[in-house]
Design a protein around this nucleic acid. Structure first.
Lengths: 241, 241
DNA sequence: AAGTACACGTGAACC
DNA sequence: TGGTTCACGTGTACT
């Protein structure tokens, strides 16, 4: 039922446009008496206008169809109902957004209180089965706000030349840019790179190719690069978790 | 300028309706020659139709005006532009809602359970704990959530034993948990795993080690596991993490 | 003066 | 059979 109606609505104008290849035929067919006699110029502009108007109508209907497509739970294909449903949907969405935003700020404060071992643990349990040698896995870096706050840095080998670099840092403003700058600075051969965001952390996983470096050397290089990038502030790092 | 246009658009029909107290005057004024002669009944129904049609148009414009009023940042009063802006606004709102929902569930996990829930929510518990219950073929099946809606599943080989599993599913509530459960159920040897979220989708990229499976076999195994998860939407379950 | 956008009345198609 | 929605071509106003 609905499908039929929709098809009809959309194809109607199309059919007419196809059939009436000469627009003036339609203009006169209605039984109207055109008062203007000079056919040469008038008819041409008239046909132009007809085509224009038809195009405009089609565009508008197209837009309306698009509007309907983005609104869920549409029952009526009715032109007015589409708009009405869209309005209702927008209002509903706006209300929801307000509600949720209130809730999120509430939870945010809760998170601020409890952000501690629990959250950090979450960030660290990325791939637990990997061995973590004593001083190897964690790089507690500058605890201030602006520079990159690295939670975990891990480099492991995979295959012959490829190495997997996994760096997790707390997500703040411009953290992603900082890390991008870091890796740009390092000038490595990337096979693939992926950025993952979860619960306040930003995890970068990189597959790089290194010819004459082993994993620990690469790790050292990255660490020194990080130190160089945000070495300007808070040189001492004494974070433990 | 905009105000003038708006007023004009709204008052146009109103003025005409007011002025032409007798509708047929307008019907004839255009210079048309009506072919139908019997004025008694025909004109009455015609005037009815005219009024009806006019009313319908006014209603529709009214709706459009209402639609415009609920959409912020409207630059053009253009009829089509109003609809277009509304569409853009709805899409923007929908995206925002998705973003916020994701964030809220993140924060929720932190709030409710300090360690374990957050851990699960992060979807990173791909550990190799083989403590699955006795009947290994039964999945936890989270309470009252929809099945995983897989958009794409791709398994390709990399090196000798390692395989790259890429699964993309539409992001819904608890989708991440579901997928985490899925991979925990599969009990594979993960090298690394990454979750990426973009525009309503959740993409999991996993590097796993498999000794006696090729990529197609692994894919089949994953597919059957997904089917099992989807199939068992049992409401009764005692999840204990 | 060419162009755009609109409201209008009308016949057709669908319940 | 009315009631209702639609696309159409047209005249008009504004740019």
């Amino acid at each position: 039922m609905a499908a039929e109606y929709s098809m009809n609505w959309e194809t109607k104008s199309f059919i007419n446009s196809e059939l009436l290849s000469w627009p003036m035929e339609a203009a006169m067919s209605g039984g109207y008496c055109d008062s203007s006699s000079p056919e040469g110029a008038a008819s041409l502009t008239a046909s132009k206008n007809i085509t224009m108007e038809r195009n405009r109508r089609n565009k508008l209907n197209e837009k309306l169809y698009a509007l309907r497509s983005v609104v869920p739970n549409i029952t009526k294909m009715d032109k007015a109902s589409i708009i009405k449903d869209a309005i209702d949907y927008i209002q509903q969405l706006q209300e929801q957004e307000k509600m949720i935003r209130a809730e999120i700020s509430e939870l945010c404060s809760v998170k601020e209180e409890k952000v501690s071992a629990a959250d950090i643990e979450c960030g660290l349990r990325f791939s637990q089965r990997k061995k973590r040698r004593a001083g190897d896995s964690s790089l507690p870096a500058s605890p201030s706000t602006r520079p990159i706050e690295v939670v975990e840095l891990r480099v492991c080998e995979m295959g012959e030349k490829t190495k997997v670099v996994s760096i997790t840092c707390s997500k703040k403003r411009d953290t992603m840019i900082k890390v991008s700058e870091l890796f740009e600075f390092l000038d490595l051969k990337f096979i693939t790179a992926s950025i993952t965001s979860f619960s306040g952390y930003l995890s970068h996983t990189l597959f790089v190719e290194t010819d004459e470096m082993n994993s620990s050397q690469l790790k050292e290089k990255i660490e020194s690069a990080i130190a160089e990038i945000d070495g300007s502030s808070s040189p001492t790092n004494s974070v433990s978790y």
